[in-house]
Measured scan of single mutants.
Amino acid sequence: LQLFIKTLTGKTFTVEMEPSDTIENLKAKIQDKEGIPPDQQRLIFAGKQLEDGRTLSDYNIQKESTLHLVL
């Protein structure tokens, strides 16, 4: 599923993930694309901070959802 990642600077980029992927996987993918170390990434969806060990489906993140990346 394609997700939109929006940064505080207003930049938006996309990543391609599976619902079974963990937040950790997502942070690694963001590191590949943007060079931001996972330990500096905080991801927010629907007002909640996402925890590394959980999956996208745990948070009911669907295709074309927008996640906010806070550094």
Rank of each mutant, 00 (worst) to 15 (best):
L1C: 03
L1E: 04
L1P: 04
Q2W: 12
L3H: 01
L3T: 01
L3N: 00
L3R: 00
L3Q: 00
F4I: 11
F4T: 11
F4G: 03
I5V: 10
I5P: 00
K6W: 11
K6H: 09
K6E: 11
K6S: 15
T7L: 11
T7R: 12
T7E: 06
T7Q: 09
T7C: 04
T7P: 12
L8G: 15
L8N: 10
L8E: 12
L8R: 11
L8F: 10
T9I: 11
T9S: 15
T9N: 10
T9C: 05
T9R: 13
T9K: 10
T9V: 15
G10K: 06
G10Y: 04
G10F: 05
G10I: 03
G10V: 03
G10M: 06
K11C: 05
K11Y: 12
K11F: 10
K11A: 14
T12C: 05
F13P: 00
F13V: 06
F13R: 01
F13I: 07
T14H: 11
T14G: 06
V15S: 01
V15P: 00
V15G: 00
E16H: 12
E16K: 12
E16Y: 15
M17Q: 03
M17C: 04
E18S: 08
E18V: 10
P19M: 13
P19R: 09
P19S: 12
S20C: 05
S20F: 10
S20M: 11
S20N: 15
D21R: 06
D21L: 05
D21W: 04
T22V: 06
T22Q: 05
T22C: 03
I23G: 01
I23C: 02
E24C: 05
E24N: 10
E24P: 03
E24K: 07
N25H: 14
L26E: 00
L26I: 10
K27P: 00
K27H: 02
K27S: 01
K27N: 01
K27E: 01
A28V: 13
A28Q: 15
K29Q: 12
K29L: 14
K29G: 03
K29F: 11
I30W: 00
I30Y: 01
I30M: 02
I30V: 06
I30R: 00
Q31N: 14
Q31R: 14
D32P: 02
D32R: 14
K33G: 05
K33F: 10
K33C: 04
K33E: 15
K33R: 10
K33Y: 09
K33W: 09
K33P: 01
E34N: 07
E34A: 13
E34Y: 08
E34W: 13
E34G: 08
E34Q: 11
G35S: 06
G35V: 02
G35C: 03
G35I: 02
I36G: 02
I36N: 03
P37M: 06
P37V: 06
P37R: 15
P38L: 14
P38H: 11
P38Q: 10
D39Q: 07
D39K: 07
D39W: 11
D39N: 12
Q40T: 15
Q40C: 04
Q40H: 10
Q41V: 08
Q41S: 04
Q41D: 01
Q41L: 05
Q41E: 01
R42I: 09
R42V: 13
R42E: 09
R42N: 08
R42G: 05
R42A: 06
L43A: 01
L43R: 00
L43Q: 00
L43C: 01
L43P: 01
I44L: 09
I44Y: 13
I44W: 10
I44M: 12
I44D: 04
F45P: 00
F45W: 08
F45I: 04
F45E: 01
F45M: 06
F45D: 01
A46T: 05
A46R: 11
A46H: 15
A46G: 11
A46Y: 08
A46C: 04
A46N: 10
G47N: 15
G47R: 04
G47F: 04
K48F: 09
K48I: 13
K48M: 10
K48A: 14
K48H: 12
K48C: 04
Q49T: 09
Q49P: 11
Q49N: 07
Q49W: 07
L50D: 00
L50Y: 01
E51I: 09
E51M: 14
E51F: 07
E51Y: 05
E51G: 04
D52G: 12
D52A: 07
D52V: 07
D52E: 14
D52L: 06
D52R: 04
D52Q: 05
D52P: 12
G53R: 07
G53E: 07
R54N: 11
R54T: 09
R54L: 07
R54K: 14
T55M: 13
T55E: 04
T55R: 14
T55Q: 11
L56I: 10
L56Y: 01
S57G: 12
S57C: 03
S57E: 10
S57N: 15
D58Y: 13
D58V: 04
D58E: 07
D58G: 04
D58I: 03
Y59D: 01
Y59T: 02
Y59L: 05
N60K: 13
N60H: 10
N60I: 04
N60Q: 14
Q62R: 15
Q62L: 06
Q62K: 15
Q62A: 14
Q62C: 04
K63G: 13
K63F: 11
E64N: 14
E64L: 13
E64K: 07
E64C: 05
E64R: 15
S65R: 03
S65F: 07
S65W: 04
S65Q: 07
S65G: 06
T66P: 03
T66L: 09
T66E: 07
T66V: 15
T66D: 04
L67R: 02
L67C: 01
H68S: 06
H68Y: 13
H68A: 10
H68Q: 14
L69R: 00
L69A: 02
L69D: 00
L69N: 01
V70F: 12
V70A: 08
V70K: 14
L71S: 14
L71F: 10
L71C: 04
L71Y: 14
